[in-house]
Design a protein around this nucleic acid. Structure first.
Lengths: 210, 210
DNA sequence: ACACAAAAGTGCGTGCGCGCAAAAATGCGC
DNA sequence: GCGCATTTTTGCGCGCACGCACTTTTGTGT
């Protein structure tokens, strides 16, 4: 039945509510500055109650970043599954992560300005990278056929950690901030940083223990 | 001058306040159950105001776990520095982590019962493992003499992530919980889980990129 | 079409985390 | 010992996260 395939009305309304809330949070943050966004305002703009807002998000930063990072982490698993089956695991993982987080996928313009505007938003954006861990573990397990659950979890966690280091390096404030306290990202493309960071894990992904 | 060596009275009082707060949080949690501990009670027991409590801790779980995990993460860096200089990096790192988190160092008795009693405490305990990342990076840099800052950060982050996976595996609820909903840790010693997890990173620690 | 179950939305109250500014404590030079 | 600078403590107020219980909406079987 159609409702099972795409999820029913309830499921679609749930997704729509979440998207409406994060879109409202982002718009209000861009209009008034992230520190001036109020939960009551976000909820009202999305047409739900503040309590419902908290059913979906535990902080303002989480809601704002959700509109920017939008399930990117979840797509890493799908990207890895889509890599050629005969490609070495290390390369496949690197390209899957770079595809979702670099090479044209990184935030730009107003969104980038926003996530680097406060420590809280920067930290939340960096934290969203951790979301790749579970989908990646599932995709690695499917790809390798390995039943070493701990080993797979460790490799996925290491990749997630390396990606987080690269993203943190990319968004961290420059040592000497620009005039007016402007914060800019690293001049290096995120794809470069990701590849360099993940290259250090190539040996671990290439020579599995056992 | 003496005050510079050990830190002055101000510094010593700061340390004492933090220890007093976390000890009070732990004692009240053991006496009344972690969910019934109030910030006002912790602050009063430690002899400071609730506002001061929040200068040191951002949550009740953080204060409780601080009394249990007590700077263990910071000592991993020192433990690595203390390993034989000619020992391969991978083995030195593994033994340093195991020394601080396993092999007789893991929580037992009431403390163990407490950190596995609620999802919040379990998550906070697992999160404290992330604290090994910076001290470990500093110790790896000192030990290898490498100036590849990103590479060192990635290796330290990967080790931290692997240790977190092992600790999370150790404290996670058993699939079939005991009667009365009792939660127990994995039957395997934490040292075993840590060694197995970190073994997967031995190739990355042994064959540096470059 | 209806009845019932399940899930989502919501109001309310509670506890609390944090920014700000003022008071108190400590460090230091003279 | 004193004056000044710095740091820590604290009170206050605000915004908010969440548990609980109730209402509303959606899903499902008959």
């Amino acid at each position: 039945m159609n409702t099972n395939e795409s999820g029913g009305l309830r499921e679609r309304k749930k997704v729509a509510t979440r998207e409406s809330l994060s879109a409202a949070a982002l718009r209000l943050a861009l209009e008034h500055g992230p520190e001036n966004v109020r939960v009551d305002d976000i909820a009202e703009a999305a047409g739900v109650s503040p309590r419902t807002y908290n059913n979906y998000f535990s902080s303002r930063e989480q809601a704002i970043v959700a509109a920017i990072a939008a399930e990117r982490a979840l797509r890493v698993g799908a990207a890895l599954r889509a890599r050629p089956a005969d490609e070495p695991l290390a390369e496949a993982v690197i390209e899957a992560v770079v595809e979702q987080y670099g090479a044209g996928s990184e935030p730009t313009g107003d969104a980038l300005m926003l996530i680097t505007s406060t420590p809280g938003l920067r930290a939340e954006f960096v934290d969203t990278v951790a979301g790749i861990e579970q989908p990646l573990a599932a995709a690695i397990a499917a790809r390798t056929g390995s039943d070493d659950e701990l080993g797979i979890a460790v490799l996925a966690a290491a990749v997630s950690a390396a990606a987080r280091v690269a993203v943190a390096r990319w968004v961290r404030p420059a040592q000497d901030t620009q005039p007016m306290g402007l914060v800019v990202v690293s001049s290096r493309p995120l794809a470069d940083l990701l590849r360099e960071a993940l290259a250090h894990l190539t040996p671990a992904l290439t020579f599995p223990t056992r």
